[in-house]
Amino acid sequence: MPLPGSDEAHVWSVDLDLPAEGLRALRELLGPDERERARRCVLPLQRDRFTAARGALRSVLARYTGTAPERLRFLTSPRGRPRLATPVGRLGGAERLKDPEGPEGLEGLESSAGLERSEGLTGAEGLEDLEGLDFSLSHSGATALIAVAHRTRVGVDIEEIDPALDHRTMARRFLGPAEAELAAALPDPAGRRVFFTGWTRREAFAKAADCPIPRTLRLGDARLLWDLHIRPGTCAALVTTRPVSALRSWTWEGPVERTPHAHPHGR
């Protein structure tokens, strides 16, 4: 499968509630550490959904790398951000990024981290290309999202909107003053959605920048942030460290993939 273009990101939506035979097949793809993490899940449903999410991630990344999904290996940053191990994929040396609370926000993150800017690609199967492959995984309830980008870092987050959560208190604790005031002023469910929208944006930012979740977001370009509409009852967001102009989305169905949909950016 071709890598994402320099001005786009790919998003895969995954249904995690799979039949037993599908789960068995995905379990065979997992590495020892993933199987151990699945084993530690308290509830069987949690274990099955974790297995499905990790297996789907391997399946998706295999399409881009041309590597068998069970042969993929992952490394993590000190904060736990995953990346593909060399030689399959590597964002060279980008373990330290600019403080998101600083005046520039995400703008200039890659230049401060020493990431190389590529004006052209050497072919989808070349090592030079795959070293720029980046991805992010998030799952909540029965849905997972997998974001894939090239020559930019990407972070994605999805959350089921919890009707029992005290969203006003959470907004005061985790969001900026203006968003917290809006979440408190609006009636439910609008105020609740304000909180979850703000929260998923911050989670996606933290995943892309490999940093603590910031209270205030400062984005230098609107094309760094995308609000995703996945299904009713959820909020989701995607953040990149370089502007992208379009998203292409798929529904993961094992070896079968649907026609992608392009979403040009607009606000």
Rank of each mutant, 00 (worst) to 15 (best):
L18G: 03
D227G: 05
E21M: 04
R83C: 10
F205T: 15
R258A: 12
D157W: 05
D7A: 15
L18A: 09
G123V: 10
A142I: 04
P189N: 08
I213W: 07
F50C: 01
A236N: 04
D157V: 08
A178F: 00
T251K: 07
R54F: 04
Q46N: 12
T240N: 07
A209V: 08
A38V: 05
A52G: 07
L130C: 09
M170K: 00
R83L: 13
E257H: 08
D221H: 13
R90Y: 13
C211F: 04
S13C: 12
M1G: 11
D157S: 03
A262F: 04
P44L: 09
V239C: 12
E203N: 05
L130F: 05
F205G: 01
P19E: 11
S136I: 02
V156S: 01
G266W: 02
L61Q: 07
V60D: 05
R27H: 13
P189G: 10
A164N: 13
I158D: 02
R242E: 14
A236D: 00
R168A: 11
R40P: 01
F50E: 03
A94S: 09
D188N: 10
R73F: 01
L182E: 14
T200G: 06
A124K: 07
E125I: 04
R40Y: 02
R242Q: 12
V194H: 03
A262R: 11
L3S: 00
L97H: 13
R39V: 06
V11T: 05
S13T: 15
T86Y: 14
P32V: 10
R202P: 05
S59Y: 01
P214W: 08
T251Y: 01
R218Y: 03
P232L: 12
A222D: 15
